[in-house]
Simulated assay, not measured.
Amino acid sequence: MRVVFTTWAWPTHLYALAPLAWACRAAGHDVVFASQPGLVGEIVRAGLPAVAVGTDVDTAGMVREYLRPGKTEGPPRAVAMLLAHAESMADDLTALVRDWRADVVVHDQTALAGPLAAAAAGVPAVRHLYGADLMSRVAPKLAGVFAPLAERVGAPGFDLCGDVTVDPVPASVQGPVTYRRLPVRYVPYSGATVLPVDLAETRERPRVCVSWGHTIAKVDAGRFPVGRIAAAAAELDVEVVVAISASQRALLGPLPDDTTVLVDQPLEPVLARCDLLVGHGGAASVLTALRAGLPSVLVPQLPDHAGHSARVAARGAGTVLGVEELPGIEEHIERLVAGDAVERRAAREVAAEMREQPAPSDVVASLAALIGGRAGAERVL
């Protein structure tokens, strides 16, 4: 089996796809990971063969527009960004899929050059979610927007949601779906790291981790509230841990002396030693917290973060606040660190559900069956 994995140049989207790409290679299949030039170095650091396609797009600049009030001319901002990435990548990706004789294209849910290239080459497209399904409900409305690009690459009748969807979100959190779903066990990955983390296994008080991903600090440092939240949490009878990247260190401001600051350390082992996540609602941090059985206090500021946060709240495994509610965040932290919090019980139930999801290696066999089924149907025709 020859598999092309693809996403646009945003590291966390690569991280979500990497475990399945590793599983394909471990099973003896041929894999290439295609993305815009800006992600090639990170793909190589993930131990995967990289191919550059298209040109880089100012993603941070386009996301920054989300945070500005008022409407703009043309399609909605999110649609404009998805189209810009697809237009950048589609021609080169289509050529790669054809010339390399790929059997299947695996794409993240927002990398819509993937299903276009697959349709143009006549091979299955496999959509890989990295969190809440943000696309299936709006895909029919996007068909007209993407039609000119589909015509350009020779992909009439394409489906933006692909032939099947690989989903790391457990069913009780994802909610009802209408597409063919391949569940997969969530495997946290956040780039090359060195273990162990600088955090003791045991603690005398509940331990609260405050972490805000990477996006908000990139697009608007003024909206990065980690320092304020850590200072507020320190007023409670809890131990506060701040997990940040090196580029975010200067944004924290003064912190209480007993605050633990972890820089560029993987979130998975950090949360395994904590009792609560306070975060921005990013897909990776949400799933990593649930995997550890931790409830969350989430303060989303972007549409996709709001979507992930809403699914956690709907499952009862956390609470969602607006930015304007940050001054009262202490009471929510205090309630959720309690051992009898209903959110804590729900998060543990989700963790057990996640452990029962099929491993990425099992999904590889399903992909091979998908290809075999498609080939058999074509022979019959």
Results as ranks from 00 to 15, higher is better:
87 E>P: 04
149 L>Y: 15
131 G>D: 07
34 A>W: 05
125 A>E: 10
104 V>Y: 02
103 D>K: 01
45 R>E: 13
58 D>I: 02
63 V>F: 12
134 L>A: 14
146 F>N: 11
23 A>W: 11
79 V>N: 05
153 V>E: 10
106 V>Y: 10
102 A>D: 01
67 L>S: 06
153 V>S: 10
108 D>T: 02
146 F>E: 15
107 H>T: 08
43 I>R: 04
151 E>Q: 15
40 V>H: 10
140 P>R: 13
144 G>M: 15
35 S>Y: 11
120 A>S: 08
38 G>I: 10
109 Q>P: 05
23 A>Y: 09
84 A>F: 07
108 D>H: 03
38 G>K: 06
45 R>V: 07
106 V>Q: 10
53 V>R: 02
30 D>K: 07
119 A>W: 09
130 Y>F: 13
29 H>K: 06
88 S>W: 08
39 L>E: 01
93 L>Q: 00
87 E>W: 05
44 V>F: 08
106 V>W: 03
74 G>K: 13
69 P>C: 07
56 D>V: 08
97 V>P: 00
24 C>N: 11
59 T>Y: 05
118 A>P: 11
82 L>E: 01
79 V>C: 02
134 L>Q: 14
35 S>I: 03
92 D>A: 09
32 V>E: 13
143 A>G: 15
53 V>N: 00
86 A>N: 00
85 H>Q: 13
23 A>P: 11
123 V>S: 07
90 A>I: 03
138 V>R: 11
24 C>T: 14
79 V>K: 01
77 R>C: 02
101 R>S: 08
25 R>Q: 06
62 M>C: 03
74 G>D: 08
85 H>G: 00
153 V>Q: 10
38 G>P: 06
92 D>Q: 09
97 V>M: 00
71 K>C: 05
86 A>D: 02
67 L>T: 03
155 A>Q: 14
48 L>Y: 09
83 L>R: 07
116 L>G: 05
132 A>R: 09
42 E>D: 15
63 V>L: 11
61 G>Q: 02
123 V>Y: 06
95 A>I: 08
27 A>R: 12
59 T>I: 13
89 M>V: 05
104 V>C: 07
153 V>I: 12
116 L>S: 08
92 D>S: 12
72 T>K: 15
155 A>F: 14
53 V>G: 00
51 V>S: 00
64 R>T: 04
31 V>Y: 09
83 L>F: 12
101 R>C: 04
85 H>P: 00
75 P>H: 12
50 A>D: 02
54 G>L: 05
22 W>I: 10
45 R>G: 03
30 D>G: 07
154 G>E: 14
41 G>I: 12
140 P>S: 15
49 P>W: 02
31 V>L: 05
88 S>K: 04
100 W>T: 00
85 H>D: 05
33 F>G: 00
127 R>A: 05
137 R>N: 14
100 W>H: 08
82 L>I: 06
77 R>K: 08
114 G>N: 01
24 C>F: 09
93 L>T: 00
52 A>H: 06
54 G>C: 03
62 M>F: 07
61 G>T: 04
142 L>D: 12
92 D>F: 09
90 A>D: 02
145 V>W: 14
109 Q>I: 08
102 A>R: 01
108 D>C: 03
153 V>N: 10
43 I>F: 13
90 A>K: 04
76 P>F: 01
